[in-house]
Design a protein around this nucleic acid. Sequence first.
DNA 1: TATCCTTACGGAATTCGTAAGCATG
DNA 2: CATGCTTACGAATTCCGTAAGGATA
Lengths: 307, 307
Amino acid sequence: MNFQQLRIIRETVRRNFNLTEAAQALLTSQSGVSKHIRDLEEELGLEIFVRRGKRLLGLTEPGQEVVAVAERILLESENMMLLSQQFSKRDTGTLSIATTHTQARYMLPEVIAKFKADFPDVRLVLHQASPKEIAAILLEGSTDLGIATDALEDNAGIITFPYHRWSHGVVVPKDHPLLTSNTLTLEAIADYPIITYDEGLTGRTRIDKAFERAGIEPDIAMSALDADVIKAYVELGLGVGIIASMAFNANRDHGLVLLNSSHLFEENVSSLAVRRGRFLRSYVYRFIELLAPEITEQRVRRAELGR
Amino acid sequence: MNFQQLRIIRETVRRNFNLTEAAQALLTSQSGVSKHIRDLEEELGLEIFVRRGKRLLGLTEPGQEVVAVAERILLESENMMLLSQQFSKRDTGTLSIATTHTQARYMLPEVIAKFKADFPDVRLVLHQASPKEIAAILLEGSTDLGIATDALEDNAGIITFPYHRWSHGVVVPKDHPLLTSNTLTLEAIADYPIITYDEGLTGRTRIDKAFERAGIEPDIAMSALDADVIKAYVELGLGVGIIASMAFNANRDHGLVLLNSSHLFEENVSSLAVRRGRFLRSYVYRFIELLAPEITEQRVRRAELGR
DNA sequence: TATCCTTACGGAATTCGTAAGCATG
DNA sequence: CATGCTTACGAATTCCGTAAGGATA
């Protein structure tokens, strides 16, 4: 058993049991991949993969256990590398963050600027992705931090820390009829076509839920990945926008007005997430503390232990 | 980084930084050991060991972390082997138990007989050792189960399950004056030389504590590793014996009488212990259930997770 | 001086990749 | 017939052990 064999079976699972792809991902030959798998199976005295003829189809029952252990070993071996860099290159390296558009665009810039000032030699990599993808990326182990609003919970391999509460706002053009009424209601909004986020993004579930509870079926005329797109179409008069209120900037969004709608939609909570068991360089903890001072290194370490 | 390098640094620590011994323990050459260490240090970009000239003296600060990660990786790699055997050779293998004389001699024989009947192809290895050594052996990872009365607690790497309560008894020759009095007291016992267990063994601490609390300084004339030795000397008239009452057998110990002394000494609890994170073959769980039916596989697995 | 670690070096073993062959859908 | 896995084989690399050299207590 060696590390390469373990990397290979892990990658084979990730690549849907396609050895050719796995070999490419690991920068090696597919013949070697094939041989390594057979060698490992022989050494362990069992079949890891279910085969039909020459094709691999899935994991056998023992194979699932074997891969689970392999994942743990590889996680620790990656920790070994991170750990040694922590000592040999204290404040240089890479901070990798997976996050959504909204966070990247409206929440992180300030924090990242501060961080860059403190750690000029740390390379920053932002993976922009959906909350679901963020969870997958975190588990995969190429990323230190995930930041998003939805769907990061309920995974034993991920620890989340809520760090910011925010609410949706309604944006309309400056001359919109909604501006005349005193209090904003769901019914009033639903009189117009609505433009908001795609499903699963930036609290979209809260929006749907609010209308559903009120027994109103809104006309979602368009949905988009980010507030910039939404605002552009609202400006064109295509409908009423519902966005995260932090995405509105009175100075830049001249033609638009933001209406407070915190009484209409449930509050949203943005969370920060880390892979359980992954070693974090000290600058990762510093970044977290810049983003949310109450989430201290100690608190994160504590959470790693419990469950 | 490869497994051999990790094994080498782990063994080097265990062998007190003597590379020659480490090489012998790993059945390899000491030049190879030396080279592997240097290679690993170079790859990680840091020094694992503190050196004076050519001698290794201890671990550097990063070295401690590195070794800790190495231990986790190696633990999992051993799990990989155990796990695969679990599938490839279901009911054959080795059950390794570290235990004290008292347990091995008086508690385990019945259970082992039953176990052997259920699992004729499982080789049984009993490591007889002191409670302290048992903890060390468990942590070292060569043993599935530890069974003892004292000193297995307070180690995060070990999980203990109390499984049996017992008390000490006093053994005297058939014609001993103590047999005439009605109720046995510590004072009465202390009138005679006492023969009992060595320090740290089989509840000896409870015996000492009882006398200390009563303000009595007993004359411990002899101490031994096991009750058989103690009984032999009591039979010779050298003193009063204090032993685990399970170690007395009316049929075999003709010349002796056992006096109940459960009111004099604190009750003892024997525990069963496993290494946290070590994979246990299913027959290990079956053995545990034979020994103590209330300690189910499920309960052990639960305890592995919490802390 | 006896013990212990490092370095050098040659041989053994392992690993890797190309290429050809074969199976699958 | 295009994609994907296995096997064969030679090349490259890594690993290992002997032996000699040098440091340490």
